[in-house]
Design a protein around this nucleic acid. Structure first.
Lengths: 329, 329
DNA sequence: GCTATAAATGAAAGCGCTTTCATCATAGGC
DNA sequence: GCCTATGATGAAAGCGCTTTCATTTATAGC
């Protein structure tokens, strides 16, 4: 691989000048620029990004930390973030935190040691304090899907409470009054927020909260399976089920089929997230849309603006979910 | 951030010695090592990976190029690859090629310019010649899910032909004789291989190929939708449908529900890939398992062995798919 | 044509590390 | 004890680039 030095020799200019035409960082006479570019072409020169990073103290890399790299949800997030950065010549380093505080912290350190210019974090377990400390340490980062008061200006979130409200409201509007709720782990911020929204909707329709119609799942398919079995075993009376995400809703629908409960006639089901497979269920899942791509894009733009000083369209911090009525409720 | 220089001063040794204890690259007296480690701890020192890369000509990063970052399939692949590398302190840079030759080439160049130590490529559109050239250029890389004769030693593949055979064989064994086939784009290697396997199974059961029962889809849900509509509109007679991937199978099942065709009683459906949502369909999808994680792991190990000279368990180049019988066929 | 100012360019000092080579200390072998 | 073979360590030269600062060249004003 040719180096900048060889280019400068061939073009008959100094290293500095070559660097200037590469980075367009200072005016260079048109004829000089021409010569340099010709030399670069001739040598098939491509700047060594590592050397650039070391010298400029910018790595042009952004670290992304999500809970799981697999799964429908994060895939779309990554996809969007990558394409945003790719378009401006930056690259994305990914890591998984697996919803574990220790792992999350370790992953963040890992990304930091990689000299990422910024981090985009989807972290669930690490404490608010830790994030505050991280901000103090000077590492630029954005947090997705979590509101942390101490670093509120770097949080991009979905109004989960509204989402929970929307889901339950939809059912209430259609006359359901006995609505069971399958939550995610309540220590997760989004899970508890969604549940709050559920309660608000109930209240609005003067339906009292019934603890026997609450089940704390795990945001996985099995959570939905166990939930429905639990309610059925307890002989709970309910005509509708709201699940705090689509995976659990799928699990619940599977069980409904198995026990011969017709959806939505005997049991209406609504999910949350609108992941890509949510319309593969039968009947197609009514759910609340999580605008994950828009959020990913916004996170990328935050970085573009605050770290790379690029002009970007207006930033938005809180996104509104939307109900997607399909066939299951 | 502290530098190696400060550590060496505090520990009262030279830069070289500090480097040695960091990299464990030459013997250092235990007492010296102790001092250095203490100094590192005291300063909260972490090596600057960019400087390390520049000096050692190793970036400790691996570029991964897949068609789409979203989607069930690639997510699991990435997930596995990342965790393999993460465990040994290497990081993963991701890019998407979107099945487009130009984009794939550009992405590869992009990753190369990032000084990746190796690339793991899931490329569909770039030519065999291009890959040969890439190999000649000295960039280490592995190709996943595609056999390229010129660089056969760097290909890790699934026996797609066998997979296609298995799917159709399963149906034939259960008495089906009129089996429609929904393929992926035939220019994609895996799609054509799977179809070959289908034909082999038919032949084995002395069933003649019927071109009217073939439909070339797009590996997307809509492909399955269009396929089934196509067959139905053409009043084709068939009792089973094999789809070259699960997305298309889902689409087909959805249509079956819509038109009141009972699965599997009136129409047996088998998919391919066994992606994570394949059991969310109703009935649960019978499919062919694509051991994507194992393949990801193997790709990572190939790199570990050939690029980082690490000892790894035996490498395997061709994986055998397996039929996963569920409820749809 | 001459100076004052701005535009182009070059020289050289790093960026934080690895690695070669030389040096010094230590331990056996006789 | 002396010599040699190792084991430990340090000095210093890069890795390929960016960036400051100084210098040279062009432009304008009179």
């Amino acid at each position: 691989m040719a180096t900048i030095y060889e280019v400068s020799k061939l073009a008959g200019v100094s290293l500095a000048t070559v660097s200037r035409v590469i980075n367009n960082t200072a005016p260079v006479r048109a004829s000089t620029k021409e010569k340099v570019e010709a030399a670069m072409r001739e040598l098939g020169y491509r700047p060594n990004s590592v050397a650039q990073s070391l010298a400029s103290n910018r790595s042009n890399s952004i670290g992304i930390l999500v809970s799981e790299l697999g799964g429908p949800f994060y895939g779309e997030l990554l996809s969007r973030i990558e394409s945003e950065f790719r378009a401006v010549g930056k690259h994305v380093i990914v890591a998984a935190g697996h919803s574990d505080a220790e792992l999350e912290r370790e992953s963040i350190e890992f990304l930091r040691s990689r000299n990422c210019d910024a981090l985009i974090l989807h972290v669930e377990s690490v404490s608010d304090d830790y994030l505050r400390g991280l901000a103090d340490s000077g590492t630029p980062f954005v947090v997705i899907n979590r509101h942390v008061a101490a670093v509120a200006d770097r949080c991009i979130t979905l109004d989960n409470e509204l989402g929970g409200y929307l889901a339950t409201h939809h059912l209430l509007e259609r006359g359901h009054r006995r609505i069971a709720y399958v939550s995610g782990p309540m220590w997760k911020h989004d899970a508890s927020e969604r549940y709050k929204g559920h309660l608000r909707a109930l209240k609005e329709f003067s339906v009292a909260e019934d603890k026997s119609l609450f089940f704390e799942g795990d945001f996985q398919e099995t959570g939905g399976v166990r939930a429905l079995h639990h309610f059925l075993d307890a002989k709970a009376k309910f005509t509708a089920l709201v699940c705090a995400n689509d995976e659990m809703a799928s699990g619940a629908i599977t069980v409904a089929h198995e026990v011969g409960l017709e959806v939505p006639a005997e049991l209406a089901v609504v999910g949350f997230d609108n992941v890509n497979f949510s319309h593969y269920t039968y009947p197609k899942l009514t759910t609340v849309d999580y605008p994950i791509e828009a959020i990913g894009q916004m996170a990328a733009r935050w970085v573009l603006k605050h770290v790379y000083q690029q002009p970007v369209p207006e930033l938005k911090a809180v996104f509104q979910p939307q109900l997607i009525p399909r066939d299951s409720a």
